[in-house]
Write a protein that binds this DNA or RNA. Structure first.
Length: 108
DNA sequence: AACATGACGTTGC
DNA sequence: CGCAACGCCATGT
């Protein structure tokens, strides 16, 4: 109830297992529409407002790249966390989604 | 209630 | 394969 869109996003992101990543479009599609990708990203920007921690670092864009959102230091930190979980990056700093993307969960 | 913004995605060239 | 433009919907002022 009164669960804002961003709250649903946070809950979904918390279900992403370590060593796996999910794209904004993927999460958006799970929440009701593939067009919600932008809103998912917006929800991530406000993830610090969440009462509980959110593994925001496991959320990347469809290109397998990290959205620095104008803060390269943040992207670097995100990449470090992912590598620590076993996610590999190519020479361009992109993730092989066909291998590390979070499998579609059994959402009813 | 309306306008402007935005951690994106897809299509076209 | 790389770059640019448009569309999309929730949130804040």
């Amino acid at each position: 109830m009164a669960a804002s869109f961003q709250e649903q996003v946070w809950t979904l992101v918390r279900r992403i297992p370590a060593g796996r990543v999910a794209t904004y479009g993927q999460l958006g599609a799970m929440l009701g529409g593939p067009r919600l990708a932008r809103q998912v990203g917006w929800a991530m920007a406000a993830c610090e407002q969440a009462a509980e921690p959110v593994p925001w670092h496991r959320v990347i864009n469809a290109a397998g790249e990290i959205s620095d959102r104008g803060d390269p230091a943040r992207a670097e930190h995100q990449r470090h966390l992912l590598e620590h979980e076993g996610v590999r990056f190519d020479h361009r700093g992109r993730v092989d989604l066909s291998r590390f993307q979070w499998p579609f969960p059994d959402l009813e």
